[in-house]
Simulated assay, not measured.
Amino acid sequence: MRNQRRNTKLTAIAAATAALALGLTACGTASDPGAKAVSGDKAAAAGEPLVVAASPTPHADILEFVKKNLADKAGLKLEVKEFTDYVLPNTATQQGQVDANFFQHKPYLDDFNQKNKTTIVPVVNVHLEPLGLYSKTVKSLKDIKAGQTIAVPNDTTNEGRALQLLAENGLITLKDGVGTSAKLSDITDKKGLEFKELEAATVPRALNDVDAAVINGNYAIEADLEPAKDSLALEKAEGNPYANFLAVKKGNENDPRVKTLAKLLNSPEVKKYIEDTYTGSVVPAFGAPAK
């Protein structure tokens, strides 16, 4: 599917990224310096395409489905730009190099805005990618023993989420009340396990070097893993706060193009596409984002 994309690949703007990241890790690509910047404070000219930054899978795939099957009929010109990290989509949106992004959940965005003084806001929920525990050598949870190493994402929200998954499955014990903000220092009983903190995008590549790894759903799919089938443990969808959403710079929520895309992303056609394509590895989670 990815070979059919006509997305614009993005080149690095290292200095701008370093200034805005403020401790958040990044890799991969940045926005095209030759691309026309879109003002975050002015209404877009009629007929201009809506440019959306997205992670390759499943975000860009879902947007490409909308572009090819729904956008023309709705009068929307849609352009998808792929990013392979969790920092640059927000910085490009804040700077007006893209109009919107689709790659993140609310806990991550809240943490990002606070650390980077950005003003990105969610528009509409689209789907959930359950976080999972994977291994190339271990066949079940009961086979994970003291002395083994588990890789976890190192960004604030996803590490806490990963540790909660491990705690819920009896692999570690956490301090009471730490919730999804848990850190390695909040583990009260490691049960002899060791942990390796890595940028979320690189965790799948570490599977051969560790005994198990907690991997974000989109990166698992890109690594040819099937979360619903290959994981040793998987997050539950019900009541999960980590729905991924369409987001824009504050003030652009009422852009007619954004409203049109939000409606299309919550359409019955997209629901069927997600269910048919990802068979439980990605699940629809439509509606208004959490406050």
Rank of each mutant, 00 (worst) to 15 (best):
L22W: 02
T84N: 14
Q164I: 06
K68H: 14
D230P: 11
Q164W: 02
T57H: 06
D276R: 08
A12Y: 00
I144P: 06
T149C: 05
I144Q: 04
D276Y: 11
Y86P: 01
S231C: 02
D189V: 01
V248P: 02
A151N: 03
G179H: 09
Q148Y: 03
Q94D: 11
G28W: 00
V124Q: 14
K115P: 06
N7H: 15
A37G: 11
Q104P: 00
S267F: 00
I62M: 12
K106A: 12
L78C: 14
Q94H: 05
K175D: 00
A212P: 12
T11S: 07
K42I: 00
L10I: 06
K36N: 07
L165C: 10
Y86N: 13
A243M: 05
V270A: 09
L109N: 14
E235V: 14
D276E: 15
L70P: 14
T156F: 01
S31N: 09
F65T: 07
I187Q: 02
L193P: 03
V38A: 13
K249V: 05
G75T: 12
G287C: 11
K229H: 04
D143Q: 13
G47Q: 09
E275G: 11
A100V: 02
P241G: 08
D176C: 04
V38H: 12
A237I: 15
V52G: 07
D72P: 05
